[in-house]
Simulated scan of single mutants.
Amino acid sequence: MKLIMHSQKVVLAAAMILLVGCSASPTGRTQFIALPDSQLDQMGAESFITMKKETPASDDAQLRQQVQCVADALIAILPDDYRNQDWEVVLFDDKQVNAFALPGYKIGVYTGLLSVAKNQSQLAAVVGHEIAHVIARHGNERVSTQMATSQALALGYQLSGEESVEKTAIFQALGIGVQVGIILPFSRTHESEADLLGLEYMAKAGFDPRESVTLWRNMAAAGSSKTPELLSTHPSHDTRINDLQSNMPANLAVYDTLVARHKQAKCY
């Protein structure tokens, strides 16, 4: 009974920690930020250096120019604080269907993605999504959340009395609960938020936002995880597509206005 009371206090402590250091994401969502952005920027820059050493850059000049053009168009519509940074874009020669953006203004695209992102707008949907992770400070939020919950559990374990089978079982269950109840939902929230911000960015940059839906249909056709959405860090393809379609009208209106003015993106 005492252990149960202690575990309840740990959960309460974790919740209280998450209320400290709160800020707002670009969509107005409250988020927990505990680390200085400069620290995340340094971590991102160091990780990117390692990636460039481990994976060669593509030697296809045309593909590199196309990826750079898409990234430049998206960066050009960002808020001043981000638009004026020294972004670095690398096309990695690797068959994996993936892309990423890191704190520190680093963007990586793998050549394998270009087999699924079949035109400039589909590529913009992916790159815009990854840039959104940086703008929304998702890396900082995720590290901060994991750090706070880990510290709360560790503190609770130390304060909960002598070692016992019951104590171990309770804290193992708490660890699973934190993972499923806090960290994974935060990750899915980040992915959904990045999808919608990326949709906004690509429309403002003159890329057809409807291609974001086509992209995720391509992704689904290329193969999908069998992990239940509840236990996944990413929303299901159907969830992403439904969310994008729900937010399409306003973004399509922005794109149509640019098309009418002949200002749509023209990367390839």
Rank of each mutant, 00 (worst) to 15 (best):
M16T: 08
A45C: 06
Y105C: 00
V10M: 15
V90E: 07
K95P: 11
Y110P: 00
K106W: 04
L3Y: 05
G128R: 11
H138K: 02
Q8K: 12
Q68L: 15
F100R: 01
E46C: 06
C22Q: 14
M16F: 12
S38P: 05
Q65R: 14
Q120K: 07
Q68G: 07
D80K: 13
T50L: 15
M147K: 06
V134N: 04
I75T: 07
S121E: 06
N140G: 09
M16G: 00
E130N: 00
Y82C: 01
K53Y: 07
N84I: 08
M43A: 11
T50R: 15
C69T: 04
G112C: 12
I75K: 00
V90K: 11
I131Y: 04
N119M: 10
D72G: 05
L3I: 10
T50E: 14
N84G: 13
V11T: 13
A101T: 06
D59S: 14
A125I: 04
D80I: 13
D37V: 12
G128M: 11
V10C: 11
A57K: 05
H6P: 01
S38D: 10
T30F: 09
A45V: 07
V11H: 05
I17S: 11
T111V: 10
Q122D: 04
H133S: 05
E88G: 01
G104Q: 06
W87M: 04
P79V: 01
Q31C: 13
M16C: 09
C69Y: 15
S38R: 15
H6V: 02
